[in-house]
Design a binder for these strands. Sequence first.
DNA 1: TTACTAAATGCAAGCGGTTCAAGAATTTTA
DNA 2: TAAAATTCTTGAACCGCTTGCATTTAGTAA
Lengths: 335, 335
Amino acid sequence: MEKQTITIYDVAREAAVSMATVSRVVNGNPNVKPATRKKVLEVIDRLDYRPNAVARGLASKKTTTVGVIIPDVTNVYFASLARGIDDVASMYKYNIILANSDGNAQKEAQVLNTLLAKQVDGIIFMGNNMTDELRAQFARAKTPIVLAGSVDAKNEVESVHVDYTAAVEEAVTDLINHGNKRIAFISGPLSDPINGEYRLKGYKNVLAKNGIEFDQDLVFETDYSYRAGEVLWPALASAKATAAFVGDDELACGVLNGAKDAGIKIPEEFEIITSNNSKLTEIVRPQLSSITQPLYDIGAVSMRFLTKMMNREDTSSDQKTIELPYGYIKRGSTK
Amino acid sequence: MEKQTITIYDVAREAAVSMATVSRVVNGNPNVKPATRKKVLEVIDRLDYRPNAVARGLASKKTTTVGVIIPDVTNVYFASLARGIDDVASMYKYNIILANSDGNAQKEAQVLNTLLAKQVDGIIFMGNNMTDELRAQFARAKTPIVLAGSVDAKNEVESVHVDYTAAVEEAVTDLINHGNKRIAFISGPLSDPINGEYRLKGYKNVLAKNGIEFDQDLVFETDYSYRAGEVLWPALASAKATAAFVGDDELACGVLNGAKDAGIKIPEEFEIITSNNSKLTEIVRPQLSSITQPLYDIGAVSMRFLTKMMNREDTSSDQKTIELPYGYIKRGSTK
DNA sequence: TTACTAAATGCAAGCGGTTCAAGAATTTTA
DNA sequence: TAAAATTCTTGAACCGCTTGCATTTAGTAA
C-alpha cells in the first residue's frame, strides 16, 4: 500500500488545464479567469489535493519555515519567548523548527548548520553566549537572524530585548530607598553579558549614585537553578546582606525558601526582587516582587521583525536593536 | 548580492566526477573507491558545500523532520515531553516542527494539515481531545503518528503514557490509609479521558474497595490554572473534604495556597497529592506529595517509537500502547 | 592472455512544483 | 469589423538531489 499522493499534475489533467494554471490558482495569482479558477478549485476539492511544500520550497526557494534555537524549552523564560514566536509565525504562515542547544556552543553551531541545510527562511536565536565563531557563521549565512531576549555584545546582529541596566537600576534603587545598604547581586553566569555586563553595570551605577561602595563579596555568581538559590543563605548571611536583586525566578524562589527555612522573616529581615515575573513569583509565599519583562512580546516582536527581514521589507527605519519596555511589580517580598 | 549557493553540481565539476558519485559519498554509500571518496570530500570541504535538504527531501521523499503538535509549550508538563522528544529526535538526525494548538480542535486540524503538506516523516501529538474528525484525518494520512502523554479512548492510534488509573488508586489509597473518608477529586476538564475516564475510575475503584460511598459533590472539575485552585477552598470546606487528589501541579499549588491563606494547616488538617511532580512541587511550602510521571521519558519513548514506525521497523512485537511506570513521592503535604 | 565477475562510475529520468517567454483567446478601440 | 491592446493559458526549462540501469574499470581465475 504505497503512499499514493495527488499531484498538481492530476489536478491539471482532471480540470483540463495546464499545471501552470493550477499553480496560479493555488497561489492566488489574479491572472486566472474566474470560471477557470472555479473549475480548478472544484477539482482540487474533489481530489483533496494538497500542494507538496517540499517541491514548492525547491522551486520557489522559500520554505515558510524558520529555525528557532533555544537553550531549553523546559525553562519557562525561553518557553514564553517561544510561544510568542510561534504565535506570530503562524500568523504569517510560517512554521517553526525548534532545536534545543543547552546553550552549548558546539550544539549551537551544529544546529545552525542543519537549519541552514534545511533552507529555513530565517532564524531566531536565544542564548547569550555569542562566540566569535557563531557570529562568523551568522555573517556567512545569508539568512536573516534575530536574537530574542539576548544581546550581541558587539551589536552586529539584530536583537530584541529590554534595557537590563535600567531595570536593575530601578529595582536596586527601590531597595536602597528602603534603607538597605548591603544589597546582594545574585545571578547566573557572569559570562552572559546580560548578567556580567548590563545588569551588573546597573547595580554598580546605583550604588555609586547613592554613595555606597561596591563590594565584590556581595556578588553571587551561580547557575540558574532553584537548588543553587536554596543553599545560598549561609553565604548571604555571612556577607551581611539585607536584601538581594536576583536575576532569575527559580533562583529567587530558592533564595527565598532558603532564607525562610533558616527562620528569616521576609521582607522584614530580608528583601528580594527577582527578574522575570514568571508564574513562580505568585506561587511562593510571600510572593516575589519582580521586574517584569514582556517575554511573550519579545518573542512576538522578534518574529515580526524577522518577517520584515525575510520579505526584504524596508527595515532601515528600524533600529538594529529593539528595546521593549520593562516594568516593576511590587509584591510581598519587599517592604 | 544574490544568495549564491554551491550545489552538488559544482562539487562534481570541481572533483571531476559525476554528481551521482558526489551524492554517493555524501550519503555514505559504500560503492565508492576510497581514493575517489577522499578527493570528493576534499572538494566538499574546500567549497564548503552543504547539501540542500529540500532538494534531498523532494528526491528521496524523506524530510528527516517530524511534526509535534503541542497544546502549549509554556506549560511545563508539555515542555518536558517536548524536550524528551527533541533529544531523541536529534539523536536520530531528525528535526522537530513545533506547533502550538491550545488544545483547540480546529487549530489541531489545521496544523496537522500544514504538517502533512510539509511532508513530515511522522507526527507526535499531545492533547487529549481526540475528536472523531481528527482520528479520521490521522487515519487518512499515511504518516505515522504517536500520541505522547495522551490516550486515544478508542485505542486506534499508538500512544505512550502511564497507567493513570493505577496511579490514582495508589495515591487515594494512601490518603485513605491516613484516615481520610472524604477525599476530593480535583482535575481539569472531565472531557479529557485521562481525567474523566481513567483517573476518575481509579478514584472510584478505591473508594469502593474501602467501602466508602462515592459522592459527586467531592468531584471538582476546573481548568488547569493556579487561580482555579486558589479560589477552591471555600467549596472544599463546605464539602467537608479532608484531603484531595489533584490532577495538575499548578492547580494543586493553588489549592494549597488557597487553603493555607484560609488558615488551614497542611497536612494536619488537609492533605494534598498532586500528579506531575514538576518543579513547582518543591517550590511551595509544604512541598507537595506527588505521583511522578517520567515526562521526559514519555517524550523520548514516543519519539523512539515513531522512528521505528518511520523506518518500517518491525513493530509487531510492540504493543500499540506503551505504558511507562509511574511512581509516588511523599513530601510535606501528606501525613 | 583471455574471459568473466565484481566494483565503480556515469547517465538521465524523475521528485512536484514555480515561472517566464510566447501563443491563444477575448475585449476594446477606431 | 479589423486591428490593437489586454487578459488568459500553455509549454517547458529549471530548482538540487536521488537512484535504477547502463557502462566502464578493475580484479580474478583459468
